[in-house]
């Protein structure tokens, strides 16, 4: 299998799907001539033209709203929010409109809209360019929320998102774009709503997604050197949650640690742990734990940012305390 970057995998997915489906077109800031700040849409304008790869004004509510309307009228728009922080500028169109119009119409319309964006810290981008909002979005009925960690998952999930016919918030991570991995050639998809066990283990379950999957795997490697075998589950899809895979694992390990980059407070860790206690209260031998960003805005200086965001050492320390 060829080894390519996360950004290239996304680019391949867009290109292949655009070749196959005339209804797909792209809108976003600097995605055309420039090819996107992370090069995800590189060369797509030259292949598909200005009509299907549209540079927009800095006007998120406007172009996400146009995406909603175009989707209702039979197209399959992909809108790109340069940073997920900017989703708040378009929050009405995402939360009040895209997520609800089908329901409020009694099913008469569908909104096959993919909202691509990237989130997270680690680059010193500051408090308005480093946030992770997936737990807010997961609270909105009518949205599918995807956050792949690997190039293969990114490609397969983006293809599924483009084909699923519903509003999907597709969350990438700014520190993943240059990571590399094997990606199957040809047409393949990863099912929405399916987590994957990325590493098997008997002592502890670590649930993560997006970039935190890589940190969890690194932590698991180091824990193994000390004789602790952690099972790492990559959620891949944040909403709907694959509780089956989580519960199967927790029933085997009896210990659960959830790691995410968004703030711990009211985050997905709380949700996952609550569901495990609701659905399998007997499964856990020790109290479940969660690890997320500390409850302050994301700072710029490296030492400060590292103190706020989850680190591999934090995962290892928590895991050791549980087994």
């Amino acid at each position: 299998m060829p080894v390519i970057t996360y950004a290239q995998a996304l680019n391949d997915a867009l290109r292949e799907e655009m070749r196959a489906d005339r209804r797909i077109f792209l809108m976003g800031e600097d995605i055309g001539l420039h090819g996107g700040i992370f090069r995800v849409t590189k060369d797509l304008m030259s292949e598909f033209g200005h009509e299907r790869v549209r540079d927009t004004p800095i006007s998120e509510a406007g172009f996400v709203g146009l995406g909603v309307g175009a989707a209702m009228a039979g197209m399959r728009p992909v809108v790109e929010l340069l940073f997920m922080d900017f989703a708040l500028v378009a929050a009405d169109q995402i939360v009040n409109q895209a997520a609800k119009l089908r329901y409020m119409a009694g099913g008469q319309v569908s909104i096959p809209l993919v909202i691509r964006t990237q989130q997270g810290g680690g680059r010193g981008n500051g408090a308005q360019h480093s946030q992770s909002f997936e737990s807010w979005l997961a609270q909105v009925p009518g949205l599918i929320v995807v956050a792949p960690a690997t190039p293969a998952d990114a490609k397969g999930l983006l293809k599924s998102a483009l084909r699923c016919g519903n509003p999907v918030v597709f969350i990438e991570h700014k520190l993943l774009y240059n990571t590399k991995g094997e990606v199957p050639q040809g047409d393949y998809t990863i099912s929405i709503g399916k987590a994957e066990v990325k590493r098997a283990g008997r002592d502890l379950t670590i649930v993560a997604y997006s970039r935190m999957t890589l940190l969890a795997l690194e932590a698991a490697e180091k824990l193994a050197q000390e004789g602790i075998e952690a099972e790492v589950i990559d959620l891949r899809t944040v909403e709907p949650l694959d509780m089956t895979t989580i519960l199967d694992s927790v029933r085997g390990t009896a210990r659960l640690l959830v790691v995410h980059e968004s703030h711990s407070n009211c985050g997905l860790g709380a949700e996952i742990i609550a569901r495990v206690y609701e659905e399998a209260p007997e499964a856990l031998a020790t109290p479940a734990r969660r690890l997320g960003a500390k409850h302050v805005p994301i700072p710029v200086a490296e030492g400060l940012e590292n103190a706020v965001l989850p680190q591999v050492t934090d995962i290892i320390a928590l895991a050791k305390g549980m087994v």
């Binding site: 709203g65 146009l66 909603v68 309307g69 175009a70 209702m72 009228a73 197209m75 409109q97």
Partner: peptide, 10 residues
């Protein structure tokens, strides 16, 4: 308003 504009774009 953007929904009508989006349908027109389609």
């Amino acid at each position: 308003i953007p929904h009508a504009a989006g349908a027109a774009l389609a």
